[in-house]
Design a binder for these strands. Structure first.
Lengths: 230, 230, 230, 230
DNA sequence: GATGAATGAGAATTCATTCAT
DNA sequence: CATGAATGAATTCTCATTCAT
């Protein structure tokens, strides 16, 4: 994704009819990102893969960046949809651990579907601190989560939901993405999810509530026997 | 940090007598990054600010990327030094919460010193999944932490230290960096640190041990009435 | 007025029933030129402002240049009409100075109405040496002027009317346009017109005839002492 | 001379040594302008003709426009040098008519040397009202002229030298340029110069002074019979 | 006739890297 | 060793013009 200067204006696609073309361009971008890497994602290449001319590409996206933005929105929407589904009425019976695990798995599969894309999206997030976009996403997540928590009567440990949302969003995104990109040997996907779930549950949910469900079998790591002493 | 071609593999900085020049170049890069932004950090500009010619710059760094690598190492060293200090013999008496808080504050100040640099380092981490480098850092941190934990007899909840280190590293880096770059309104620096500390403590440390120190005054947030208790 | 290729020869506007559309396009062009500058005057923008589609625009004008040509003709017509009026039967009693002043004022007001347009027209005149068009205009002006001169019996100093017309046309156009575009400080509109009038009168009209009307109160400028006298 | 957006900064050539390269670029631009026309004067073409790479071109000129600016300055300098020469001490004995004629011939030969260049310079003058540049030139001309006028004791008719300089500059430039570009049939170069000289002399110089030198043999043109009467 | 989506050649500009001095 | 002028591949983006609907 070669970058020059980051211009301001971000025109939305002009016509409603040509959603097909817009989709083609977005999909082509993802395809290039996944198969050829960020450096290959030039306007010319994207247009070629999308089967349109550069001119057409620019008819719908005023900048190369605008494409990335659109993709970010699309992925955010995807994540929101997944969470709505997972935390919907039909799943109120699940334990917090089950629910959070389901969400983590959902997220992981979203990242897994297009790791190269999310790599670029994360880089973009660093390039231009996209506070507003992320904030909007956070708010949507908070709304969904709050609704679910209220419905299940789950007790939350955090005082400041906004801070918690911020911390959780950044932590989960970075961890999952780094995992998918680096594939650290010795850590399975399931194990990573377990770690995240455990971290989040204990960070977010009240102990009393957590106690209601069978605790994970996490055993102490160090020092083994000669424990604590005190 | 304008990028063209990722070119060949990244070589380490050439062995060089003139440490002064190398330092000058590294410092110049940081200065440019902080004051003029990533886009201004061209080889020519860096050389100019460092007071040397481009040619000389290439005498010491085979790639532009090599400079970034060197800076990453330098910052990692800085972090390690800080942790060694904070978790040293002299501080064994501290409670886990105090220790973790001290580490978080140390990290925050490292990021705070050069946010622009760390922004680029984080981007670089995404650009080329630098598994090995991060892994090496993690190992050093684990060593320091293990030592400290053993010395204080602290009980750890995690089974797999490597996974935990991975999760913690990514979570803390991403959260702090995003915080510094976005400066989300309504979240103070101290509050963010508290959140991270709380998350990490409960993720990492055994409840029994935590209980030994005054618990944080986190109050439940939601749902309001039909609260937990029962 | 962005230009790519000068392409083929310039065709005249296609014969069109819908004078309204043609006018709309011409007016839109002027509006864009005045309010958004030459660079904004793209076919798409002009069409948009005119309230038609690009396709329609091309129905009436084979080139973007054809629009400019049409506008040039329109402005020439406007100038001719103004001169005919000013130098008409009803104004034979005026002194040469009065007449020329009236013409200059008329021209100035034509330029003043659309300076941005005339800027482009002048540039176009340089881009493609539009000898024929200008020549035709000159001839019309000469006809009008000759008629007026004969009717008033004014004695002309020039031997070669064509050369004089050429010189006068270029001088007046360039001076007025530069004046309007640069607005040189310290020169009022009236002053500029006086200068031009004085220059033209003395260039064109016989001294004896000029003497008949009160001379301008131009005072000598230099050298100070050994002044000319009388 | 394809144009996109007119950026601001105009860096002067960096090094003094490489004057040769700068000159090569300027000369190449002129050559392209003269032989291939304005549309061919792209950065790539100019660089090629100059025998350097585009990169080098941009090392010395931050914009394509900067080249044009440099050429404008060069031509202005050329004109000033010519006038200094023509109106120098050695030529004080000449009559006003002779002097002005000499200047006009000098100018004509400057335009004649590179009509294509001056065409572009004039267009540029319209594109961005370059008031300051022209003003600076005018001042230099005024200085030279004033000196000469004082030395010869010539009486000037104009009250406002600045206005006069403005009018004269624009009139002469436009007329000569249009002449060279259009080559209107029936007007010889000498004739055009005579016209300009006559116009300027009568516009600028006091009649008494003009009378000192044999008047031009301009005969009345119209109306034929009822002539003015001597 | 009108529409406006699609086209694509082509222009400006950047910057990592080399190498003759 | 240091210098910094030269390189040129590569990229983004524009806009006149066409043509299927």
């Amino acid at each position: 994704m070669p970058r020059k200067t980051a211009k301001t204006a971000r025109k939305p696609p002009l016509q409603a009819r040509s959603v097909a073309t817009v989709t083609a361009i977005l999909d082509a971008t993802v395809r290039v990102l996944e198969k050829e890497g960020p450096d290959a994602a030039t306007t010319t290449r994207i247009a070629a893969v999308a089967g349109v001319s550069v001119g057409t590409l620019y008819q719908y996206f005023s900048h190369l960046d605008a494409i990335v933005d659109a993709l970010l929105d699309r992925e955010f929407d995807r994540a929101i949809a997944m969470m709505s589904e997972v935390l919907s009425e039909g799943n109120l019976a699940r334990s917090p651990r089950e629910s959070v695990t389901a969400v983590m798995r959902g997220l992981m599969s979203i990242y897994l579907a297009h790791p190269g894309l999310h790599r670029v999206l994360a880089m973009e997030a660093l390039r231009i601190a996209e506070a507003d976009r992320v904030r909007a996403f956070d708010l949507r997540v908070i709304a969904i989560a709050s609704h679910f928590l209220a419905a299940t009567g789950t007790a939350v440990r955090r005082l400041d939901v906004n801070s918690a949302a911020f911390v959780v969003f950044q932590s989960v995104r970075a961890t999952m993405l780094a995992y998918l990109l680096e594939r650290p040997p010795g850590i399975s996907e399931a194990a990573l999810i377990d770690e995240l779930v455990d971290m989040l549950l204990r960070y977010l949910i009240d102990d009393a509530w957590l106690a209601k469900t069978p605790p994970v079998t996490q055993l102490p790591f160090l020092p083994s026997k000669k424990r604590v002493r005190s």
